[in-house]
């Protein structure tokens, strides 16, 4: 059984933006796209550890603020010719509330 943790309501996260949830695994960045989809990634770029929550969100991707790596919000994979992966966490939206699970979806590749 997946353990879902209520972390707040959708409006707490700016559209095309991100908020940080502090956890035992370290910071987790919660993203909200233009279409109001939510995603959760470990707040650490696979390149040099930049805080992805501080990046520019576009489509279902985020650009790391440190060196412009583009990371997929779906699975944390670096896009283009860069390779690396940051863990993604299951997250769901129900009745406008955002739920996060700390079961890691993927290990760092």
């Amino acid at each position: 059984m997946t353990q879902w943790i209520d972390i707040g309501q959708l409006e707490d996260i700016p559209r095309l933006g991100s908020r940080v949830v502090e956890s035992v695994h370290g910071d987790i960045a919660i993203f909200r796209t233009k279409e109001d989809k939510v995603f959760a990634l470990r707040d650490k770029c696979p390149h040099k550890g930049g805080a992805l929550s501080q990046g520019i969100v576009h489509g279902e991707r985020v650009t790391c603020p440190l060196h412009n790596w583009v990371i997929s919000l779906l699975d944390g994979e670096a896009q283009g010719f860069d390779s690396g992966c940051t863990p993604a966490y299951p997250v769901k939206l129900e009745n406008n509330r955002v739920y996060l699970s700390l079961e890691q979806e993927r290990k760092t590749g």
Partner: peptide, 11 residues
């Protein structure tokens, strides 16, 4: 305001 504070703390 939301920019500078974490959304919440879990686990």
């Amino acid at each position: 305001k939301q920019e500078f504070i974490p959304l919440t703390q879990v686990g």
